[in-house]
Design a protein around this nucleic acid. Structure first.
Lengths: 357, 357
DNA sequence: CTGAAAGCGCTAACAG
DNA sequence: CTGTTAGCGCTTTCAG
C-alpha cells in the first residue's frame, strides 16, 4: 500500500540496518552457507523489513555473463514458437535464469542484430531458431563472437552448436508406411516451397520411403512457390484433373485449405478422399471430420534444447568442449476421422502428370 | 572470423586507444554534441577498430531506470498476444528501448512475481495484460511499487494506469444491428464463461442492443462454465431442440466448433444457419464457407498502449501526472460467406427456453 | 570542451 | 566466519 517514491534500498542499506557488512548480506542472499546463523537471521529480518530486492542485473556485472538465457525465434505469432518460448521460459526460471525472448520477424538482418544484442547483454547462452531463408548468418555471428548456444528447429546439424529439431524425415516416412498399409496407392503431397527446409525434407523423405516399400504408389507433389493466396487456386486446378485417394499436407495451413477445398467441390472426406497433415493443432480435433495429423513434440524440443544449452553453459567452467550433438525428436501420429482405408473397389485412374506453379 | 576469448573491450580500453578519457567516449557514444569533432572521430575510429559494443545494462546502472520496457502477457501461445508482443517489440526498439517479454501463463501468482521482476530489473515501464481471473493482483502490486505502466486487453479502466482495449461492447452492438438488418430474428450467442470479462461484455452488449433496436429478436445465450471439452456436446444438445437462424460465437474456438457441428448434423451454412464469430483469424478465410468475423485491431491496440506508456515514461520527468485514460479501440466486421440474409419464408419456430450447463 | 573523481548496486579476494 | 578493499562497465559532476 505504501509507496516509496524515495530511493530504492540497496544492499548497503540492508547491511547497515542488519549491523553487518554488505559482503555478508550478499553471501546470505546468495545462500552461501558459511555465515553465522544469527547474522543470517538479522539479514533476513532487515530484508523483510525494508522490502529489499536485489538488482539481478547489477549482480551480474562482476561475472562475465549474467543469469539470462536468450531466445531468438523467427516469429512470435505462431503457436509453434509461442509454445517453444513458453516452455523455455519455465525451464529457464527453474534453472535460475531469466529468459529473454525476441523475434527476428523472419529477417536475417534482424536475426544478426539480435544475436549481437544477446552478446552485449552478456547472456549465459542463446537458443536460436533460425529464419527460414537460412544462410546461417545468425549462427555464424554467434560463432565469431564465441557465444555459447544451441540451435532449434529448421536445422540439421552444426559443427559447433548442438541442434535440436523434429524428425521430419522419420515422421514423413511413417506416414508413407501408414498410407501404404491402408491401401492407398495414389497420394498427393502439398506444400509451400517457401517454408523451405522442413517442407522439402518432409516431401523427399515421403517419396523415398514410398518408393522403397511400395513402388506402385503414385506420389504427386504439389509445391507452390508463390504467396499463399494462390495456393487454394492451384490445389483446385489440380483436383479438377486428378483424383488421389489421399492428400498429405506438409504444412499446417495447407491442411485446412485442402479440407475446405474438398468441401467446396463436394468431395466427401474421408469417403472420397482421405487427409493427413503435418503439424497438429487444436482445431483439427473439432473440425468435421477431425483431421489426422503428425504431431510435433514441441515441449520435448524445448526440453532438449534447453538441457543441451545448460550443459554447455555449466560445462563451460568444466572446460570440456565436447563435440556438438544433433538431436532429432520423433513425432507421433494422431489418427482421426479424416484418414481411412482406401475403398476396396478402386476406380481405374487414368495416369496423369502433375506439376507445381 | 577472429574469436576474442580474451577479455571484452571496455569503455576504458576505447578511451585509451583513442587517447581521450572514458567520459569523453561515453559522451560521444550517447550523442552528446559538446565534443570536439576531432575527438569524436578518434573515438569512432577506435570503437570501430576494436569492435567495441557498450553494455546497455551496465549503462543503466547509474540512472533510476534502464532502457527496457516490460511486457507481461497471460500467454504466448495465442496468436493474439503473439501479435501484441511482436508489434510492441518493434515499437519499443524504434523508441530506443528493449522489450522484455514474459508470460504469466494465466496464473495470477506468476503475474505478481513477474511484476516484481520488472521492478527489480528497473524497467522504464511495464505493459500488463492481466490474467483472465483478474482480481487486479498484478495491477495492485504495480501501484504499490509506484511503477509506471499501462494496461492492455481485458481491462476497462483504472484510476492510475491508462488502459487500452478492444471495444467489445461496440462491436457486439454492431453485429446485433447487422443481424437485425439482415432479417435475423432468432440468434444464439455461444461463449465460455471462463474467458470472463471480454465474453460477458460481448454477450450483454449484444443483448442490450438487440432489445433496443429490435425487441422481437429472440436471443439465446449458451454460456458454458466448464472445460472446453464439453462445449461441443452442449452445443449439439442445444441444436437438437433449437433452430436459430444465426449463431454468433463470442470466442474464436467456438466459431470453429459451431461450424463443425453444423456440418456434422447436416446443417448447411449459410443456407440453413448463418455464422459470425468474434475474433478473426487466418483460417476463417479458407474454410468453406469462409467465416464472417469481428476483427480485433490488434496492432492498433499495441500502438495505443505503447504510446500511452511512452508518454508516461517521458512525462515522468516533466512532472505532470495527468489523469488516466481509458481507450477503447473499435473493431471492424469482416463479412464473408457464412452470413446471409435470413430466407424470406421463415418457418414458424416454436419458442423454447435454453440455458447453459 | 575535457577528464579526474565519485559513484550506480553488487560480488570477489583476502586479510583478519 | 566477517569486513575491507577493489573493482565490474558505465555515467555524472564539476573543476579546470
Amino acid at each position: 500500500m505504501t509507496n516509496q517514491p524515495t530511493k530504492r534500498a540497496s544492499i548497503h542499506d540492508v547491511a547497515r540496518s542488519a549491523g553487518v557488512s554488505a559482503a555478508t548480506v550478499s553471501k546470505v542472499l546468495r545462500g552461501v552457507t558459511t555465515v553465522k546463523a544469527a547474522n543470517a537471521e538479522k539479514v533476513h529480518a532487515a530484508v523483510e523489513a525494508m522490502g529489499y530486492k536485489m538488482d539481478p542485473l547489477a549482480a551480474g556485472l562482476r561475472q562475465t555473463t549474467r543469469k539470462i538465457i536468450g531466445l531468438i525465434v523467427p516469429d512470435l505469432e505462431s503457436e509453434f514458437f509461442g509454445k517453444i518460448a513458453a516452455r523455455l521460459e519455465i525451464l529457464a526460471e527453474e534453472a535460475g535464469y531469466s529468459l529473454s525472448i525476441v523475434s527476428s520477424h523472419e529477417s536475417e538482418a534482424r536475426e544478426e542484430r539480435l544475436v549481437e544484442r544477446m552478446h552485449v547483454w552478456r547472456v549465459a547462452g542463446t537458443i536460436l531458431a533460425p529464419v527460414r531463408s537460412e544462410r546461417g548468418a545468425g549462427t555464424q555471428l554467434m560463432k565469431s563472437l564465441s557465444m555459447t548456444g544451441a540451435l532449434i528447429d529448421r536445422v540439421v546439424s552444426d559443427d559447433i552448436y548442438d541442434t535440436v529439431a523434429v524428425d521430419n524425415a522419420g515422421a514423413s516416412a511413417k506416414v508413407a508406411r501408414l498410407l501404404a498399409e491402408k491401401g492407398h496407392r495414389y497420394v498427393t503431397l502439398i506444400g509451400l516451397n517457401e517454408v523451405s527446409r522442413n517442407v522439402r525434407t518432409r516431401a523427399s523423405a515421403f517419396k523415398q520411403e514410398a518408393q522403397t516399400i511400395c513402388p506402385d504408389m503414385r506420389v504427386d507433389v504439389l509445391m507452390i512457390d508463390e504467396r499463399e493466396d494462390n495456393f487454394r487456386a492451384h490445389l483446385s486446378d489440380y483436383l479438377d484433373a486428378n483424383h488421389p485417394s489421399v492428400v498429405f499436407s506438409l504444412f499446417q495451413k495447407g491442411t485446412l485449405i485442402a479440407l475446405s477445398e474438398f468441401r467446396r467441390r463436394g468431395l466427401r472426406c474421408p469417403q472420397d478422399v482421405s487427409l493427413v497433415g503435418f503439424d497438429d493443432t487444436e482445431w483439427m480435433q473439432v473440425t468435421y471430420p477431425a483431421v489426422s495429423a503428425v504431431v510435433q513434440p514441441i515441449s520435448k524440443l524445448a526440453d532438449h534444447a534447453f538441457h543441451r544449452l545448460l550443459a554447455r553453459i555449466e560445462g563451460q567452467r568444466g572446460g570440456t568442449n565436447s563435440a556438438s550433438i544433433c538431436h532429432l525428436e520423433p513425432c507421433s501420429l494422431q489418427l482421426r476421422e479424416s484418414l481411412v482405408e482406401v475403398p476396396p473397389v478402386l476406380p481405374a485412374e487414368q495416369p496423369q502428370v502433375i506439376q507445381g506453379a
